[in-house]
């Protein structure tokens, strides 16, 4: 039976150093994915992730158990990455105006694939590449939504953004992803059999 995050945190607070290593091992891959999709640079993403774990460790005695460790930790990581982005001059906290799209599709139906092609590794790789290429503004929200399977409320808690902004960003991110994959299909990168 796998030990829960709660038990690990209790052990850490009792002075068991090894338990924190297990917590790091448990969350580092998902954390790295979020950091990579925000910062788009492997080295910087790893540094940000390291900073986030160290901050989490220092703040662990103040952890209030109101949310899960992962939600709390991703909030720290998101803020570390957002700070790094703002140092580069990219503001991830800006609020977007405008409504969710009402337009039609721009992926020609004839470029869509037969069902079996959706199961291929090639399609999977193409989608992965396109998610990684999404701007940080949308990539971060889409990553939390898809990768972590998080609800709107959890994303609001992590990002500190208003619910409306989260919804708009997620919608736009999903549409951008759809359009970019559609364009690739249209350009014949993945041949329809």
């Amino acid at each position: 039976m796998q030990i829960t995050d709660v038990t690990l945190i209790q052990r850490i607070l009792a002075g068991e150093k090894k338990a924190f290593a297990e917590l790091v091992d448990r969350h580092k891959d998902r954390g790295m994915t979020l950091a990579m999709r925000m910062l788009k640079n492997r080295e910087e993403a790893e540094e940000a992730l390291q900073d986030a774990f160290i901050r989490a460790f220092s703040a662990l005695p103040r952890f209030e158990w109101k949310s899960s460790f992962s939600t709390w930790f991703y909030r720290i990581l998101y803020n570390v990455c957002a700070t790094r982005l703002s140092r580069r001059g990219e503001d991830i906290h800006m609020h977007l105006d405008g409504s969710e799209g009402e337009g039609g599709f721009d992926v020609p139906a004839e470029d869509l694939l037969p069902d079996e092609k959706y199961e291929s590794d090639e399609f999977q790789s193409m989608v992965t590449r396109e998610i990684e290429a999404l701007p940080a503004l949308y990539g971060s929200i889409c990553t939390l939504f898809f990768m972590q399977d998080m609800s709107y409320d959890q994303i609001v808690e992590i990002t500190g953004l208003p619910l409306g902004t989260v919804k708009v960003r997620l919608f736009r991110g999903r549409m951008l992803l759809r359009q970019s994959v559609g364009r690739r299909l249209g350009s014949g990168k993945l041949k329809v059999v």
Binding site: D29, R42, A45, Y118, T128, I131, F146, D149
Partner: peptide
């Protein structure tokens, strides 16, 4: 979106 959910994770 199914493919997006099962995209491989980046590893440090």
């Amino acid at each position: 979106e199914r493919a997006a959910r099962s995209a491989p994770l980046s590893k440090p």
